[in-house]
């Protein structure tokens, strides 16, 4: 038998575009911010818009992240994902309204405790609802895309109507807790406190998801499952359980996003999740179905684009995100960070 073959690492010279390629999606964010800076005459407006764009992006990311993993892992298209956003908002905001004495008090600690309580209860509720939704609605239609669309849209409608049954048909207006009202002034620009908090929460959620997906075994199973679920099972992992777990976590995150979105808009309606679904789908598609990083970048791009364009050309704002999606899909038809699929 011959000696072991040599396998020296090959370091072929890559062209600039090859080396930049993997980083292009990330670079799009600073590029868009710089374009905004050039297009917007006043620096302070630009700064305000950039912060609100990033805040909006973070909230969309939190709402969308679960959907992209659910699709990646089990090829399930869940049009009902927006239901968790609505339910999260209604449960969370109800808790906040019940804790009115805490949210109105001029104490930062009490305010934050109230918000924390609202968020936790909302996430528990939407997580539990995700578990039930998966069992009752999604499980029977594994592998059938058309049925998934039909039945999950149906689920969304039922949930919306249930919200109206419990909370009534009127939209609910609310005030943010004392500590989250108002703005701070930085470099002549007014930056709303709540938006800065939203950016912070978004970054924490993204960092936590990345940590789980990159550094834990369950995260490895999820990433491997997105690529080749059959092989994950052949190694001995029960993918179905992992999927249910991801579905629950994704639903809870959508619930968190719903609370944050409600506090951002200061009004909630039963249809808010349905309305958010348009943005959520755009983000998930341009990011690359199944990719959390892509979803994150896509959400920030959508948030920034929406805010810049709404300022520069309000009439164009409605189609700016669709335009962004078209442009990105023409550049990368599988999304910015396409997920490798074995099949």
């Amino acid at each position: 038998m011959s000696a072991a073959p040599q396998h020296a690492p090959k370091m072929a010279q890559l062209s600039l575009s090859d080396r930049l390629g993997p980083w292009m999606p990330v670079l799009l964010i600073p590029i868009l911010i710089v374009l905004g800076f050039l297009a917007i005459p006043s620096t302070s407006s630009w700064l305000t818009l950039t912060v609100s764009g990033l805040a909006m992006g973070m909230m969309i990311f939190i709402m969308a992240s679960g959907l992209t993993l659910v699709f990646g892992l089990m090829d399930v298209i869940n049009f009902g994902h927006g239901a968790f956003v609505s339910v999260g908002a209604f449960v969370g905001i109800s808790i906040l309204l019940m804790l009115g004495h805490m949210t109105e008090a001029p104490s930062l600690v009490l305010n934050l405790l109230a918000v924390l309580a609202a968020v936790l209860v909302a996430m528990l509720a939407t997580g539990a609802m995700g578990w039930a939704f998966e069992r009752v609605i999604v499980k029977p239609v594994y592998g059938h895309h058309l049925k998934q669309i039909l039945v999950t849209v149906g689920g969304l409608i039922v949930v919306e109507q249930l919200i109206i049954v419990f909370w009534g048909p009127e939209e609910i207006y609310l005030m943010r807790p004392e500590a989250l009202q108002g703005a701070i002034t930085f470099a002549g620009a007014a930056l709303e406190k709540y938006r800065l908090v939203a950016v912070g929460v978004g970054l924490v959620v993204f960092a936590a998801m990345r940590f789980v997906l990159r550094r834990t075994k369950i995260g490895l199973i999820v990433r491997a499952g997105v690529e080749n679920g059959e092989m994950v099972q052949a190694l001995g992992y029960r993918l179905r359980l992992v999927f249910v777990g991801v579905f629950i976590a994704g639903s809870a995150l959508a619930g968190l996003g719903g609370v944050m979105w409600g506090l951002y808009q200061e009004v909630i309606t039963a249809h808010m999740g349905n309305q958010a679904m348009i943005l959520i789908f755009i983000v998930v598609i341009i990011g690359g179905l199944g990719s959390v990083e892509g979803c994150f970048i896509g959400a920030l791009l959508v948030g920034l684009m929406q805010n810049y364009v709404a300022f520069l050309e309000p009439k164009v704002a409605l189609i700016s995100n669709i335009g962004l999606m078209v442009a990105i899909l023409m550049w990368r038809p599988m999304g910015m960070i396409p997920v490798v699929k074995a099949k």
Binding site: E227, A234, V339, V340, A342
Partner: peptide, 10 residues
């Protein structure tokens, strides 16, 4: 498996 079933992303 025949296609080796490597997780390319990992």
């Amino acid at each position: 498996p025949e296609d080796m079933g490597i997780f390319a992303d990992l």
